[in-house]
Design a protein around this nucleic acid. Structure first.
Length: 166
DNA sequence: TTAGTGATATCC
DNA sequence: GATATCACTAAA
């Protein structure tokens, strides 16, 4: 089983996101296979948190590839992202679901992930990492969800990637 | 369909 | 200081 390294994440979010589907997300010994991701691509993407610029919350998005961005949504759900691409380019991949856990909030709850891991590196952390066990699958694309505040054209982008099941 | 929840951003 | 918003979930 191969741990994903810097070179894997040091690519554009649109390349990394489909590649993450089918990989294993491991936190403190619990492993779940990623079944759904979404790409968020920079300040020109109105769905990306960083599209209005750098703030205390979004500055993690500008960090180097492999940095973990954890964010509390609606006061009760931790959502997990991994930063990709070049440093100072605010793009990343949201882990939306795993096999046996459909929904970003459920997924982090199941793995015990909280904001304490924000800004950690998924490449060097002892607690949280992603591995490739050789699992092969096909990936389907779809529109992103839950971003009604974004421009219509950004809502229509096929930047959601799902594990093909059947 | 709607309530619940709290950090963050934005406006005084 | 206050309020509005939000990459969601569970219950109805």
């Amino acid at each position: 089983m191969r741990r994903l390294d810097y070179n894997f994440f040091h690519r554009h979010a649109l390349e990394v996101a489909p590649d993450l589907v089918g990989k294993l997300l491991i936190h403190n010994g619990t492993a779940l296979r990623i079944s759904e991701t979404e790409a968020y691509c920079g300040e020109q993407d109105t769905a990306c948190h960083a599209h209005k610029g750098r703030t205390k919350r979004t500055e993690v998005l500008y960090a180097d590839a492999g940095t973990i961005y954890i964010y509390l949504c609606y006061g009760m759900h931790w959502l997990m992202n991994v930063i990709t691409g070049e440093e100072n380019d605010p793009q990343g991949v949201l882990i939306r679901a795993c096999v046996e856990a459909d929904g970003p909030g459920k997924l982090t709850k199941k793995l015990g992930i909280t904001g304490a891991l924000n800004r950690e590196s998924i490449i060097t952390s002892d607690a949280l990492w992603i591995a490739d066990d050789g699992f092969q699958c096909s990936v389907r694309t779809g529109k992103r969800v839950g971003i009604g505040y974004a421009s219509q054209e950004d809502q229509d982008r096929p930047w959601r990637f799902l594990l093909e099941t059947e």
